[in-house]
Amino acid sequence: MDDTELHRERILRHVSPIITGRFLGYQASYTREIRIGRPLALFVFVSAGIAQIIAALLRMRPVRRTLKELRKGPEFLVTPVRLRDDLGQTYEIEMHGQLPQSALHRGDLVQVRTQPQADHTLPVKLLQVVNLTTMQPLTPRIPTQWSHLGPALLLQAGLGVTILGAVLAAWLR
């Protein structure tokens, strides 16, 4: 056995929604994709398609995206964060999104609010952190399904639903 195995730090999974400890630092970040459900993507795609047909007739340039692009969803940054509590136990928490680099410094006393993830093999997800050293509350921001779809496409989908509703109302009269 070598020395690194003798002194290997045990990383714990925390189950409580609140963890208080010292900020040890960020680990290597990576990206993860948010999948958009097939029913939502199909609804937006078809609704926007109706508006795109009308826009093509009026010689306007609609926003065009494939169903595959819509389903792919946005990517967000995942950064493992390590904390050490007063008992010396080390915890790893996943932070989705980003915080300003100057928000946390090694050794700062922090209190984090966490939530379990759908995949129980992953560490808990950081929802909010309060830097007790500076008394600054911080919330990481991640892209959502709605920001991925974009305002232009959502407006087209809304217009498509309105047009379809008007056509159906006229037809059923």
Score class of each variant (00 low, 15 high):
residue 1 M to T: 08
residue 1 M to D: 04
residue 1 M to Y: 08
residue 1 M to V: 08
residue 7 H to P: 00
residue 7 H to Q: 12
residue 8 R to C: 11
residue 8 R to W: 07
residue 10 R to C: 01
residue 10 R to L: 06
residue 13 R to V: 13
residue 14 H to F: 12
residue 16 S to I: 02
residue 16 S to P: 03
residue 17 P to E: 15
residue 17 P to D: 15
residue 19 I to W: 15
residue 19 I to P: 09
residue 20 T to Y: 10
residue 26 Y to K: 11
residue 27 Q to F: 13
residue 29 S to I: 10
residue 30 Y to K: 03
residue 30 Y to S: 08
residue 33 E to D: 13
residue 34 I to Q: 05
residue 34 I to R: 05
residue 35 R to T: 09
residue 36 I to S: 06
residue 37 G to A: 14
residue 37 G to Y: 14
residue 38 R to W: 07
residue 38 R to D: 01
residue 39 P to H: 10
residue 40 L to S: 03
residue 40 L to G: 02
residue 41 A to L: 06
residue 42 L to G: 02
residue 43 F to H: 03
residue 43 F to C: 06
residue 44 V to R: 00
residue 45 F to L: 01
residue 49 G to Y: 01
residue 51 A to R: 04
residue 53 I to R: 01
residue 53 I to H: 02
residue 54 I to T: 04
residue 56 A to G: 06
residue 57 L to S: 06
residue 59 R to N: 11
residue 64 R to W: 00
residue 64 R to K: 05
residue 66 T to P: 05
residue 66 T to V: 05
residue 66 T to S: 13
residue 68 K to F: 13
residue 68 K to G: 12
residue 68 K to M: 12
residue 69 E to Y: 11
residue 70 L to M: 10
residue 71 R to S: 10
residue 72 K to P: 09
residue 74 P to L: 03
residue 74 P to W: 05
residue 75 E to T: 07
residue 78 V to N: 03
residue 78 V to S: 08
residue 78 V to T: 15
residue 78 V to A: 10
residue 79 T to V: 08
residue 80 P to V: 14
residue 81 V to G: 09
residue 82 R to C: 13
residue 82 R to Q: 15
residue 87 L to T: 09
residue 88 G to P: 01
residue 88 G to A: 11
residue 90 T to M: 01
residue 90 T to R: 02
residue 92 E to S: 13
residue 93 I to L: 12
residue 93 I to G: 04
residue 94 E to H: 11
residue 94 E to I: 06
residue 95 M to N: 07
residue 99 L to M: 09
residue 101 Q to H: 14
residue 101 Q to T: 14
residue 102 S to E: 14
residue 103 A to G: 06
residue 104 L to Y: 09
residue 107 G to L: 11
residue 107 G to I: 06
residue 108 D to E: 09
residue 108 D to M: 09
residue 108 D to V: 09
residue 108 D to Y: 08
residue 109 L to N: 03
residue 110 V to R: 01
residue 114 T to W: 03
residue 117 Q to T: 15
residue 123 P to K: 10
residue 123 P to V: 12
residue 124 V to W: 07
residue 124 V to Y: 08
residue 126 L to T: 12
residue 129 V to Q: 06
residue 130 V to E: 07
residue 130 V to T: 13
residue 133 T to C: 07
residue 136 Q to G: 10
residue 137 P to T: 15
residue 137 P to V: 15
residue 137 P to F: 08
residue 138 L to P: 01
residue 140 P to Q: 11
residue 142 I to Q: 14
residue 142 I to R: 05
residue 144 T to M: 00
residue 148 H to V: 07
residue 150 G to K: 06
residue 151 P to L: 05
residue 151 P to S: 08
residue 154 L to Q: 05
residue 154 L to A: 07
residue 155 L to D: 04
residue 157 A to L: 00
residue 158 G to M: 05
residue 158 G to P: 02
residue 161 V to T: 00
residue 161 V to N: 02
residue 164 L to V: 05
residue 165 G to I: 03
residue 165 G to C: 08
residue 167 V to F: 09
residue 168 L to H: 01
residue 169 A to N: 04
residue 172 L to S: 07
